[in-house]
Amino acid sequence: MSDANGADRVPLLAFANVSKWYGQVSALMDVSFAVGTEVVGLVGRNGAGKTTLMKLTCGLLRPSQGKVAVAGHDAGSATARAALGFCPDLDRLYERLSGRAFVAWMLRLHGVGSAQARARAGEVLEQLGLGADMHRRIGQYSKGMRQRVRLAQALAHRPRVVLLDEPMTGLDPIARHELAQTIAQLARDGVGVLVSSHVLHELEAMIGRVVLIHQGRLLAEGRVADLRGQLRGQPHRLRLGSERPRELAAALVRLPQVVGVEFADAAVQVALSGEPGFYGTLTALGAGSAGLVEEVQPLDDSLASVFGYLVG
């Protein structure tokens, strides 16, 4: 089964009506969604329930209600854990071990032989740019290097589902770019990836879909553009580049779909109601003899805007 993006929707990770309470406090309420062979972003404010959701997937926590399945197996079971890789948002590691020794040890617990584990650990660390430093103690690593070790232990055993909690933390821009490529490659290789990040523009660049969590509830789920399209109550904002912004503004305010106009340098920012027909008029303003519009740039189709509209 595939969705419009071609993403395979076989649920490698499935949440079915999952709730989690810590005593009287509700951390997650009746959350249901699925992840196939794709990259899905997990977005929410601090305390929204993202980490709880990831820990439930790992089996570190048990759901108070509902069911979490990883590759068709109950989360927390040995089979599910074998299919799962988790990069926690936790700057703690075995400081006295070398990067390679740590990753190799984790692989040994997956039943990989000693020599193979060392070789595979070296291979993954090499891919993540730690080849030259893999024999140094983790305690001597920089923040970015430590993050790569955490990623390596999550990926080394070739899991079918990967959870990445703030994976960009501590990485330099080049490493961030490389990690985004690695994550995209994982999905192409048939891995389901659930990634949480507060850096929404970076997250948006690598995900196919997004799951928005707010106060323990699933607020929205789907492609960012689709979610924006569903927000009919919110004005849509565009930046229109023009050499004659005053004339453009005068033309725009006469349109029934326009609810606000602002000047910004050689451009006009316009707020639109959800009524149809605006883009036909815009084409006429740009392509016709008036030639008032030179550039159109949506201002709130981003994940950050959608998140802002939904969460407030």
């Binding site: 890789g85 075995y94 617990l109």
Partner: peptide
């Protein structure tokens, strides 16, 4: 105490 138990509990061993 330092939360590194997570790395162990994630592995398919009891």
């Amino acid at each position: 105490e330092d939360r590194t138990f997570q790395y162990l509990f994630l592995r398919p061993v009891s």
